[in-house]
Each structure stands twice: as structure tokens, then as C-alpha cells.
Nucleic acid binder design. Structure first.
Lengths: 202, 202
DNA sequence: ATCTTCGTGATACGACCGTACCATGATGGT
DNA sequence: ACCATCATGGTACGGTCGTATCACGAAGAT
């Protein structure tokens, strides 16, 4: 049956199996055999499409971040045409909160990768650390724009406020993930933070 | 030379070896043999004082959080007698930022444990999740007190602001840990956040 | 029609890990 | 003075993990 096969597609399927398995077992505990079983292929095939576990992990990380970026973009787009800056930011940050299974898995695995990156230089060199930076640029741009229209409270620095919002969202995500805080509570805290930044609606 | 030995002390020594080794290799990569070598004892002894790796890990977590709580308390105390609420909060949160080796290790390992807790129910049941809650209570109390003295900006909810500060601090810590943000930048963001909450100094 | 290359399977190998087992001085109680 | 117990060392065992090896059928190229 060995027809010619689309490697890129196959690699994507396996990467998604990795994400599913790692979401269930934890990234630290997932092995090549688990990924193979999850993808419904033999161990050999996982080796064939990714030469080593390290390559698989790296590809899985890229896949994970790309999927998530698409999700966030879709949520922002769903917020409607030209909503206010606050609405866009709220949609963006709310999409990142681990309130459903997909987002939970993302948070779980992204944090796992971040921890690994502390001691693994190959991961540390990976550009996945830059994704938050670009998100921060986006939010800072929105805030600057809002500031020009007088929508922000006095004394708010767009750059610092953007950094604060992103870090706040990340921290909230972790606390929701480990069950310390409920999703509703987290969105409430987020809204309160936006209240501190934006002028009250007139 | 087997004199009678203080078990509690020995266990603490080994737990500290665990923390050092895990800080260097990553919690996922540290084994009993690594801990033994780091502590300068034989593998057998680690087994002797902790019957299993799980017990060792659990004890290590407790030790880690206790040490860190002491550190934070010391920093707060060093802030001087009866400083303002803002100064206390700033000292508390700044002490938690991973700016030196000890705090970096704490953040690294605490996050590692948190990730493990997502898939390990023994860890999830551990009360280490409650530590942030008590910190939040402390900060909320300080904010409430400040609110009564009119030191907060109007519309600030002490509870939500406290939760926001803690989450912000945690998120900042992670970004500093992975090298996305500098320590100075993080303290700046933290200060800006406090500016959003507290009235400007008169 | 043959041959090379591709996709796939099964399985083996070496390393490491947590744990268990056996041995043995030293010590303190009586 | 003896003996049970404590602290410690050495080492072996079973399992798993990532990787490498061997094998083979099917398809496209020539």
C-alpha cells in the first residue's frame, strides 16, 4: 500500500497526536510510543517522519503555537468589525484564558515547553518566546491608539500597560490551569484590570 | 561511623540537594542518583530517608515553598517598620521576582511542580496551591486598609486588584525566567501597575 | 520488465531509572 | 558483654525509552 504520501500532512497529523497525548499524560511523560499509538501508526513511522524525539518536540511546539495564534485571530475577528480598542484587547486576552479544553491544553503544554526551555538550549533558542512579544506589540499599538483618542485614564503608559496585561493574562491562565482560580473569576480580574486602564464608558 | 542521626535534618539536606540538582538539570531530568551525588551520599541513603521518589518530590516541594515564604517575609520585614501599604506590597512582589539565583530556582521549580500537578493527582492534592491564596489574602488586606485611608484610586476593588497583582507578578516572573524580559523591565511594569492602583503621592 | 527508491513493519540494543535485596560495621540498651 | 537495631554501602533486577537494524512489498522511473 505504500503510495506516495504527503510528508507535511503526515507530520502535522503526528504532531497533533503528540499534542493530544501530551495533553493527557503531560509533556514530560509522553514517549514516541505514546505518540505513535495516539496517531494510530507504528513507532517506526514516527521515527521515519521525525528523525529524533527532539525534532518531534520542536515541530510540535511550532504546530502548537501556530494553531493557537489562528485561534486567537479568529476570536478577535469574531468580535465584529471595528469594535473599540478595549473590546479587541478583551477578546484577545480572553481567547488566551484556559477556559475550554483546547486552550487548557495549549496553556499546559506551552508552560511545559517554557519550563524545558530553562534547561534545554535548543528550546531556549526557539522563537516561541517571541510570540508573546508580538502580542505585546499588538496590544501596545491598540493602547497607543486609544490613548490618542483620550480613552485611557491619565498616566497610563501604553507600553507598560500592554506588558502588564499580557503578564496578567499569563499568570491568570496558570492559576486557572492548576485549579486555583475559576474561569469566571479570571475574566472578572481581567475586566477589572481593563477598568484600571480605560476611562469609564461615558 | 553510624552514630544516631537526626532524620529531619538529613531529609532537609537531601531536599536541598534535590532543589540544587533540579535547578541545574530541570525537575523532569533529575533522578535519585543525581540527588544522591549532589548531596554527597549514596543512592541507598536517599532511598533510606525517602522511601520513594514521589515522597522525595513531595517533601522537596514543601521545603521549597517554606524556604521561599521565609525569604519573602524577611524581605518585607527589611522594608522597615510601618512603611506604607504600597511599599509593603512592592517589597512582597519584588521579592518574588526571579532576579537572583535563589528566586530563579524557586520560580523554575515551582512552575515545574505546577505543570506536573496538572497530570499528577498526588501533586494536585498538595496544598502548595494554597500558598498563593494566602498571599492574595495578605495583599487584599493591605489594599483594603489603604482604601480606607483614601490611598487608592477610585473604583479600585481591593480583592480584584490583589488577584491582579499576584497574577501579574507570576506572569512577569515566568517571562523573566525564560529570558523574554529583563528584571529591570519587570520591576518597571510592576511599579506601573501599582501606579494604576494607588493614588499618586501627594 | 527490471531496478531503485519509498513507506512501513517488526524487533533488537544499549542506556538509564526507580526499586529491592543483601551485607556489614557501628552503636546503644540491658 | 552481648545483641538487636540503626545507618550505610554495593549491587542486581525489571522495565521503559530513544534509537538503530533488518526486512519487505509496492510504485514510479527507465
Amino acid at each position: 500500500m505504500p503510495r506516495r504520501v504527503d510528508h507535511a500532512e503526515r507530520r502535522t497529523e503526528i504532531a497533533e497526536a503528540l499534542v493530544r497525548a501530551a495533553g493527557r499524560l503531560g509533556l514530560h511523560a509522553v514517549g514516541m510510543r505514546d505518540v505513535a499509538a495516539e496517531a494510530g501508526v507504528s513507532l517506526r513511522l514516527v521515527q521515519y517522519y521525525f528523525e529524533s524525539k527532539e525534532k518531534l518536540l520542536l515541530f510540535g511546539l511550532r504546530h502548537l503555537t501556530e494553531r493557537f495564534a489562528q485561534r486567537v485571530a479568529a476570536r478577535v475577528a469574531a468580535a465584529g468589525a471595528d469594535p473599540g480598542a478595549r473590546a479587541v484587547i478583551e477578546a484577545l486576552l480572553a481567547a488566551a484564558l484556559p477556559v475550554d479544553a483546547e486552550s487548557r491544553t495549549f496553556h499546559h503544554l506551552y508552560t511545559s515547553y517554557a519550563v524545558l526551555a530553562v534547561t534545554d538550549e535548543a528550546l531556549a533558542a526557539q522563537p516561541f518566546i517571541k510570540d508573546p512579544d508580538s502580542a505585546e506589540d499588538t496590544v501596545a499599538g491598540l493602547l497607543r491608539q486609544a490613548a490618542e483618542q483620550g480613552e485611557l485614564r491619565p498616566g497610563v503608559d501604553p507600553r507598560a500597560a500592554a506588558a502588564g496585561l499580557l503578564s496578567l493574562s499569563a499568570g491568570l491562565g496558570t492559576s486557572v490551569l492548576v485549579g486555583q482560580r475559576s474561569a469566571e473569576s479570571a475574566t472578572g480580574v481581567l475586566a477589572h484590570q481593563l477598568d484600571l486602564i480605560f476611562q469609564p464608558a461615558k
